[in-house]
């Protein structure tokens, strides 16, 4: 059982606050992804869990044990680093065996575990090599094998795929998911890549400026962003936002369209819709086509709506031309509303 609880953790570097009072609980065997742009505090949070950084305040619990005062070696964790950190002076075998030797396991057990994890990561044939003789992808595998061989309660991964090229990343992503699911280890995985986050996570914690903005399942985060930032960060292209003004009897006017929306005493709120959730024609938002980008399966159309940019993903059969005036009908169940001041979902 290795549940992780982060309670009120804050981190300040001099006058700069990297983390504000973060609370997060990760269930046993859960795959949690910390997602955010660079500088949002996700790596700092991971390093605090690892014990490489000390929190300015707050507590970290792993498996029911408070660990924030313990050095990394006493926390029952293993970590995979962004640049792999494969020891250059040791062979692959000795790299994987490194932690086991520190635990003073008998040679037989060391060999058994090294061979098992090497097999798991498909690097059995590389055991005698050194880091300098390995490709980036192979080094990555060694780093993961080294962490798995420890049979830790928790695996921490800091952007482990970001140094690989696109094709290799795709391959490793699928493999990591399989291996980690089979190992049943609680995992915290840090990335800035939303696709990676969506495909791997049981739950995503979206971070922004040292705070967790939303932590929920990938679909929930995508469909129901808890804040404007989540909608604008996740999705490619991201969510569209248009100002809405209050109309008669509690409805809202959005770019010439009247919609029923949430109750609010504010005169203006924000209407939001994902690009794929609009259809051309019928009753809809008034839009003028600016740029058309055919992408194969569909067409990305950038329009002018209420003086702002609006992206719509339309069927590739749609015959639109630059300068056309369009009506874009939002799917009613996909419409979201945000408070422009708090930026929270309404």
């Amino acid at each position: 059982m290795a549940e992780i609880a982060i309670k009120g953790v804050a981190k300040r570097f001099g006058g700069f606050t990297a983390l504000h009072q973060v609370d997060l609980t990760i269930a046993d065997q859960e795959f949690m992804v910390l997602l955010g742009a660079s500088g949002c505090g996700k790596t700092t949070l991971l390093r605090i869990v690892a014990g490489l950084e000390r929190p300015s305040q707050g507590e970290v619990w792993i498996g029911g044990r408070r660990v924030d005062h313990l050095p990394p070696r006493e926390r029952g964790i293993a970590m995979v680093f962004q640049n792999y950190a494969v020891f250059p002076h040791l062979s692959v075998f000795e790299n994987i065996a490194f932690g086991l030797r520190m635990k003073k396991l008998p040679q037989q057990e060391v060999e058994r575990r090294v061979n098992r994890t090497a097999e798991l990561m498909h690097i059995e044939q590389l055991l005698k090599r050194y880091s300098g003789q390995l490709s980036g992808g192979q080094r990555q595998r060694v780093a993961v094998a080294r962490a798995l061989a420890m049979e830790p309660d928790v695996i921490l991964m800091d952007e482990p795929l970001s140094n690989l090229d696109a094709l290799l990343r795709l391959e490793m992503r699928a493999e990591l998911k399989g291996v980690l699911a089979a190992s049943k280890t609680t995992t915290i995985y840090v990335t800035h890549d939303q696709v990676e986050a969506m495909s791997l996570a049981d739950r995503i914690a979206v971070m922004h400026q040292g705070r967790i903005v939303q932590s929920a399942s990938p679909v929930e985060v995508y469909r129901n962003p808890a804040a404007r930032f989540v909608g604008s960060f996740i999705g490619n292209p991201p969510m569209n936002f248009i100002p809405a003004t209050k109309a008669e009897n509690g409805s809202w006017t959005v770019a010439g369209l009247t919609l029923s929306g949430p109750k609010s005493d504010k005169p203006r709120i924000e209407f939001a819709i994902r690009p794929e959730d609009v259809d051309a024609g019928g009753e809809g938002l008034r839009a003028t086509v600016r740029v058309i980008e055919p992408l194969g399966p569909h067409t990305l159309v950038t329009c002018d709506v209420e003086g702002g940019l609006f992206r719509a993903i339309l069927d590739s059969n749609a015959s639109v031309q630059v300068g056309d005036d369009l009506r874009l009908a939002p799917k009613p169940d996909r419409i979201r509303w945000f408070d422009p001041e708090t930026t929270n979902a309404l």
């Binding site: 490489l52 050095p71 640049n83 950190a85």
Partner: peptide
């Protein structure tokens, strides 16, 4: 020498001195 090598050693069970000596 990347700090990560030292940090990796710490997460793999080394004290500061052991990490210095072994890595």
């Amino acid at each position: 020498i990347p700090v990560e090598l030292e940090e990796a050693a710490w997460t793999l069970g080394c004290t500061r001195w052991q990490a210095f000596r072994k890595v």
